[in-house]
């Protein structure tokens, strides 16, 4: 089955991105395809490569980067939300890309399921 995931909150303050990651990893382990993760609202902060969490904490952005590299997950950051919050191509982590809200709507149209994680 093809899954799309929508993340509406940034890392660390809310559990949303953690829950979404663990869901995505479990879906892949079960043989599903996680086609795209769309980052909206403060969720765009998940995409910055400038974060340096302590060594003994998880690195939320790096975890998404690796999942994308290993399993071809398309990590899309909403351009309008990103511009409001200073997330530009210059600070974007590997495998993230900035694009329009149409990419979110497309997940709903094309994939079998769309799951939202937020506050």
């Amino acid at each position: 089955m093809q899954f799309g995931i929508l993340i509406n909150e940034g890392p660390y303050t809310h559990q949303a991105s953690d829950s979404a990651f663990l869901f995505a990893r479990a879906a892949i382990e079960k043989g599903h395809k996680v086609q795209r993760v769309f980052f909206y609202h403060d969720g765009v902060y998940n995409a910055t490569r400038l974060a340096t969490p302590p060594q003994d904490d998880r690195n939320v952005a790096a975890r998404w980067e690796k999942l994308a590299a290993d399993h071809g997950v398309d990590l899309v950051v909403c351009v309008a939300a990103a511009q409001r919050r200073g997330i530009t191509d210059g600070v974007l982590g590997d495998n993230f890309r900035i694009s329009g809200l149409g990419q979110l709507v497309e997940m709903g149209i094309q994939y079998d399921r769309l799951v939202t994680f937020g506050d």
């Binding site: 899954f3 869901f23 479990a26 399921r113 769309l114 799951v115 939202t116 937020g118």
Partner: peptide, 20 residues
């Protein structure tokens, strides 16, 4: 359920709604 069970629930139902 665990995260795998969460995935199964999403797959088994036609749609899902997150009450944010």
């Amino acid at each position: 359920v665990d995260y795998g069970g969460f995935v199964d629930l999403v797959a088994e139902h036609k749609s899902c709604q997150s009450w944010l």
